[in-house]
């Protein structure tokens, strides 16, 4: 039965992708651990600083297990990580890392979520429209703007927006300052500038991918055939073009989400937004190793997961890929 064979192949493909993702996660965990613990000087003393008594240094070395061989330390750390134990922060309060990063994680999720929620529909709309009306005014304008903006780093876009909307026409706060446990959604005015910055910096890329995919889809034999059969253009766009550009678009959305994970640091720092990016930069400055490890792993896992989901969804929606399997 070809159907059964095909669905079998499909499951096998998905399982293989999951396997690859797991191996990747393992390798990444090794790299993160190695990079953060092979420090010049003594981590324990670096962390404790001026208040370090020999006993305190010894205790911290113990906590970090610095006396043990590297492989043993790594495995112990990995074991704890798998059990969800992220360790204890080395900074003043010595809080559990999971507790310490809970609020930043939520804040970053809110920022990234709000950005994607606005960015994806916007980019799809503009991208498809540009693709369908290739070469016309809208297309040319969108192309020009997006070509310009992809080149500009997020902190420059953000700085320009601050200048425009917080300094010259002061309608918005220049920094986010969602503090303590306040949900950033409850003070949306602080979200505007960071989200706007990320949309402007990220939309250009997505628009261009969607546009190209649309142009390619509009040039396929299906579309030609449909045109010849007299199917109305509007219907061709919704039925064929959009559907056929779905797979590359999903990949592009996933790439945008991944880009967000990288771009969000800079934007969070620029606007003093209390998310994981800010927390990570601070942790790097104070060398709070467990926090660095936790956030780096978290972001890398999110990165891998986004990729995995996008791959699986692409396999499911793209009939060509399915038959190819």
């Amino acid at each position: 039965m070809p159907g059964a064979a095909s669905s079998h192949g499909l499951i096998w493909m998905i399982l293989r992708r999951i396997g690859v993702a797991l191996v990747l996660a393992l390798v990444v965990s090794f790299l993160v651990y190695a990079a953060t613990t092979v420090l010049p000087g003594d981590v324990a003393a670096a962390v404790l600083g001026r208040n370090a008594t020999p006993e305190a240094v010894a205790a911290l070395r113990e906590q970090l297990g610095l006396g043990d061989p590297f492989a043993q330390r790594y495995l112990a750390w990995l074991g704890a990580l798998v059990r969800g134990d992220l360790g204890t922060s080395l900074a003043g309060t010595r809080m559990p890392v999971s507790e310490l990063i809970a609020t930043p994680v939520r804040n970053t999720a809110v920022l990234a979520g709000a950005t994607l929620l606005l960015l994806v529909p916007l980019a799809l709309f503009v991208g498809i429209l540009s693709g369908v009306r290739q070469g016309r005014a809208l297309d040319r304008a969108a192309a020009g703007v997006s070509l310009t903006l992809t080149a500009v780093p997020e902190f420059v876009v953000g700085a320009l927006l601050v200048l425009a909307l917080a300094v010259y026409v002061p309608v918005l706060p220049a920094v986010s300052l969602v503090s303590g446990d306040v949900n950033p959604l409850s003070v949306p005015e602080f979200l505007v500038l960071p989200v706007l910055t990320l949309i402007i910096a990220g939309a250009a890329y997505l628009i261009r991918i969607v546009r190209i995919s649309t142009i390619e889809a509009m040039a396929t034999d299906y579309v030609e055939a449909a045109r010849l059969a007299g199917v109305p253009e509007r219907r061709i766009v919704t039925r064929y073009a959009v559907r056929n550009s779905l797979a590359p678009t999903i990949q592009a959305i996933s790439a945008t989400a991944q880009w967000l994970l990288g771009g969000i640091f800079v934007v969070e720092v620029l606007f003093a937004y209390p998310g994981v990016g800010n927390a990570l930069v601070t942790a790097v400055q104070v060398r709070d190793v467990p926090v660095i490890q936790a956030i780096a792993m978290l972001l890398a896992l999110a990165f891998i997961l986004i990729n995995l989901v996008a791959d699986i969804v692409t396999i499911l929606v793209d009939p060509r890929l399915r038959t190819a399997a």
């Binding site: 003393a45 670096a46 600083g49 060398r287």
Partner: peptide, 13 residues
């Protein structure tokens, strides 16, 4: 140096 290292007795302080 990072501000956090100023009082690092192993490296600087």
């Amino acid at each position: 140096i990072p501000q956090a290292d100023v009082y690092n007795t192993d490296l600087y302080y």
